[in-house]
Design a protein around this nucleic acid. Structure first.
Lengths: 227, 227
DNA sequence: TCATTATTGATAGTATTACTATCTTTCTCA
DNA sequence: TGAGAAAGATAGTAATACTATCAATAATGA
């Protein structure tokens, strides 16, 4: 029996659901490849259309513009990652162990066990690191937020915040700490590889050191005695 | 006697030094206003030229493109902020107090005491929050880094890392903690105002709570007993 | 099986952006 | 006075980010 993970996306993210047609899936698959390879600013619908053998207009039938497509891809990733988090922590009772597992999932590329056919999660992870924050660092955040485009990210953050509170119900900043963990798992990775003097991992370029840093940061705060 | 703070910028940042002409200073001043008001993506050299009464070609004589102009503005800010940090901590001996001062400078809009004529630092602070990371989240980071365009940011980070080590010479992640403080001072501010559920400050929207969060985070780590 | 509808393909066209080039005027200062 | 630098004026190009239209084809269901 093959189990296929189906992720249901917010309908505001697209004009026509890309999961429901061959062309749609090709758009997603090759967008990920192209954004990964050349970066989001160099990515255009025209180039995408050419590589998948359709026309610009064809792509515009699925996505309003490339920013929406980026949000779609990023939202997909967060939804998928929250599934991974739930799946891999559901048999763990100790919230500290849970939190460590989450930090690991955030900071390293998750090896996918279920088949999600046309999406390459390890490329996606790299995209999220470099392009993820561009989804919300715009003038349209508020509007996009009203359309609930960032819900997967917010859900994951809330999930992590809950586990932080399980570790210590008196901790005062669970949500801010959660968003700090998420962002820093990525920024420290980007810095390590591109601006290494902003980190302590430039020599080894080892993602596991980022995990150590984040664990140190998180558990010293969460398990601190109240002064 | 009037003291004017002169900030000397890396020459790779511009084609012609904007500080040395009326037009150049107008370019900087109005770029800041326009980017602040409409965001970096909506900002174009053509619109800028129109508002300051010159032509597109006129602006291109100073800056290669709008991305370089953004890097210039951001680099200016970091240079200025490091001056503020140095100035306001130089009579403090306790590194913990120093670090608290730095967190405050990062998380709140600094009231400028010296006149830096044509630059509005409080607008700049807002720009850095929303647009700052776009300077390096590109495919050209490595190249731009070789041109030393990010030196002011890296210098500030190194400066903060040194103070962290003064607090605790055994702390293992001074540079990563420094970059975390800088980035989170801004991201938590952005989230607080735009995606409040990612923070614990959504209700009050008070920058001083960000300071509390960062102090808690930093000092629990830096002053932690080795386990 | 035929008609309806959805989907895609093909082509064209527009406004804006991101530049580059050139030539003239103005301003400075030696 | 006159050489050189800075700025203004104008033009033009390639690419981007779309929108519109119409024909061809595939899927569906009565």
């Amino acid at each position: 029996m093959e189990i296929e993970l189906q992720i249901k996306m917010n309908e505001k993210l697209f004009l026509k659901n890309p999961e429901q047609s061959e062309l749609g899936r090709k758009i997603i698959m090759h967008s990920i490849e192209m954004i990964h390879q050349h970066g989001f600013e160099a990515f255009t619908f025209k180039k995408l259309a050419e590589t998948i053998g359709t026309t610009e207009a064809g792509v515009y039938r699925y996505f309003e513009n490339k920013h929406r497509l980026l949000i779609y891809i990023v939202a997909w990733y967060w939804t998928w990652l929250e599934y991974q988090v739930t799946y891999r922590t559901n048999n763990i009772s100790d919230p500290v162990v849970k939190l460590k597992m989450i930090i690991q999932l955030l900071a390293t590329t998750v090896e996918d066990d279920l088949s999600t056919s046309y999406v390459d999660e390890s490329l996606l992870h790299q995209i999220i690191i470099t392009e993820g924050s561009k989804t919300y660092l715009t003038r349209r955040v508020t509007e996009d937020n009203k359309d609930r485009l960032f819900k997967p990210y917010k859900d994951l953050c809330a999930h992590i915040a809950d586990i932080i509170l399980e570790c210590n119900p008196a901790y005062a900043y669970p949500k801010s700490l959660a968003s700090t963990i998420i962002e820093m798992a990525h920024f420290q990775n980007f810095f390590m590889n591109n601006l290494p003097s902003l980190t302590d991992f430039g020599r080894d370029k080892d993602a596991y050191q980022i995990i150590n840093f984040l664990e140190d940061l998180v558990f010293n705060s969460v398990t601190a005695k109240v002064q």
